[in-house]
Amino acid sequence: MREPAWRKTGSTPDYRFSLANETTFLAWIRTSLALIVGALAIDQLFPEIAPAPLRIAMCVALAVIGALLAVLAYRRWGQMEEAMRQNRELPFSGVMLVMTIGVAAAAFILAVLLLAAR
């Protein structure tokens, strides 16, 4: 497969920064996997946690966010690597804020559902 164009620009960054970028990518991939597995686990193991439409909507949202996060992980890895090659400031990303709000909302809804199920 072809290497993207930015690979030929700028200079090779300190290898420690590159490796840190790589481990960050992998951490996002694991987060993405956790969301996908969480969605499937709720849907398959605890089908009675909520009425079907709500459960399906929640699980689909979690799994879609998981898939999206894997795409963003790759995109962000490339952006970071490019910025480091150009010696530019690292790009800001809204992913953290969206993820924080999203995961907090999911946890809140789950807590309400678990309490209501009692």
């Binding site: 290898y15 790589e22 969605a39 849907d43 399906i56 999206l68 795409v71 890895w77």
Partner: peptide
């Protein structure tokens, strides 16, 4: 050195496919 982009692309693509198929399953 930093990994080749294709390596990162493949590993992310695998997770994306898994995510999309679980959306379908749910």
């Amino acid at each position: 050195y930093a990994p080749p982009s294709s390596l990162m692309r493949w590993s992310a693509a695998g997770v994306v496919v898994l995510g999309l198929s679980s959306v379908a399953a749910v």
